[in-house]
């Protein structure tokens, strides 16, 4: 089970009223390499991964939901006081006519989320390599959003999230080493 804490993982701030940035952020909300995909991918793969790395997939998967909440907070803050006209100018008219300013699991181009974005091959090496690739793709997506954004406070939160992908990738690489290890050779720390 999971329980809720009434706090964000990181203090999210946004300094400019710029709904266009909300549109870009949807890539990390409902996109192929976004936080929802990440959370669902790891928390689903963990049932069939070797016991030694179940804890890691559980903890990283849980953290991805905290990231999803941060992205949602950014989108919420950037759109909550925007008029229909401002949303139209931001390229969000198509979103508005279906959802008003409700959040939805779309990518930046408005394509709805699909389970086809994630994989579970049941082969531990294939799954962990998929996870490493997913982290690098999420890191790259954060870079491209930072490149498009001139909001310093928003970029501060995005840099935090990008850095998390680096640490996650590191841990998944270590997980590959752990499950590749010969049972008879003990790793000394």
């Amino acid at each position: 089970m999971w329980t809720y804490e009434k706090k964000l993982m990181y203090p999210v701030k946004v300094s400019t009223c710029n709904p266009t940035l909300a549109k870009y952020l949807m890539e990390q909300y409902g996109g192929a390499d976004g936080e929802l995909a990440a959370a669902l991918r790891y928390l689903n793969q963990r049932y069939t991964i070797p016991d030694k790395v179940i804890g890691l997939l559980t903890d990283i998967g849980t953290e991805e939901f905290a990231h999803l909440e941060m992205i949602a907070t950014m989108i919420y803050k950037l759109t909550k006081d925007a008029t229909p006209e401002q949303l139209r100018k931001a390229g969000l008219a198509e979103h508005y006519v279906s959802h008003d300013s409700a959040l939805f699991y779309n990518n930046a181009a408005g394509v709805p989320f699909t389970a086809a974005y994630i994989q579970a091959k049941g082969d531990p090496i294939a799954d962990l390599y998929e996870d490493i690739a997913a982290e690098e793709k999420a890191r790259a997506t954060y870079q491209w959003i930072i490149d498009q954004s001139d909001d310093p406070d928003l970029n501060d939160g995005l840099r935090f999230l990008r850095e998390r992908e680096i640490v996650h990738s590191q841990r998944f690489r270590e997980a590959v080493e752990i499950i590749s290890e010969d049972r008879d050779q003990k790793k000394v720390f």
Partner: peptide, 19 residues
Amino acid sequence: ALKTGTLWTPFYDYYDNPY
């Protein structure tokens, strides 16, 4: 650690638009 996004200094990599 919170500000940078990692507890471990060797993993830190500040990113900004290179262009």
